[in-house]
């Protein structure tokens, strides 16, 4: 069966009727060169946009609530090893974009990079999206270098 052809309108649908959607859409248009598509969802008073990154197997979620904006980017899937998770938590100290994680079914952990901002940044949202992507790359670049130490031999003897 031939897969359906995605038109630009399919991949970049128009924003929904939400008071903050025009501002978010304007930011996304500025960064369209980075994106392969976006999706919109409205949950009650909340607005969510999920961006798919061009040439990158990652996505970024923008969640606009009454109290502020959350930016959340998928970073890396890592082993659920205490050394790695301790490293992540230690690295969180003082970071603007912090790491969070969810456990997957195969004893691995999905690391995301996340930050909350006040609604006043809406006019500069494109800049904050760019910052989120840079932070994710920095986190990924460092995480890729963390090595699980080998168990000392003879401990159990």
């Amino acid at each position: 069966m031939t897969p359906p052809v995605m038109t630009p309108e399919d991949r970049f649908p128009a924003p929904p009727g939400h008071p903050h959607a025009p501002a978010v859409a304007a930011a996304l248009e500025q960064l369209r060169f980075l994106l392969s598509g976006w999706q919109w969802q409205v949950y009650g008073d909340d607005l969510v946009a999920v961006l798919a990154l061009r040439d990158e197997a990652t996505s970024l979620r923008i969640w606009v609530r009454e109290g502020g904006i959350n930016l959340d980017v998928f970073c890396l899937r890592v082993p659920a090893h205490p050394h790695i998770l301790t490293w992540v938590l230690a690295e969180n100290y003082g970071q603007g974009f912090r790491a969070r994680a969810t456990r997957s079914e195969d004893d691995r952990v999905l690391i995301y990079v996340t930050a909350d901002f006040p609604l006043t940044i809406l006019g500069d949202l494109a800049q904050y999206i760019w910052l989120a992507l840079e932070s994710e790359l920095r986190w990924r670049g460092r995480l890729m270098q963390v090595r699980i130490p080998e168990e000392p031999e003879g401990l159990s003897a």
């Binding site: 980075l34 230690a90 790359l137 270098q145």
Partner: peptide
């Protein structure tokens, strides 16, 4: 060029972690 420049920008930020690790600054534990 836009795609090449963006892939370079990504490679450069990712490489910072590698350089930090090779310079002995990567693992705080």
């Amino acid at each position: 060029l836009p795609a090449r420049v963006l892939s370079g920008w990504r490679a450069r930020i990712l490489a910072q972690g590698l350089l930090d690790a090779l310079n002995g600054q990567g693992d705080p534990l």
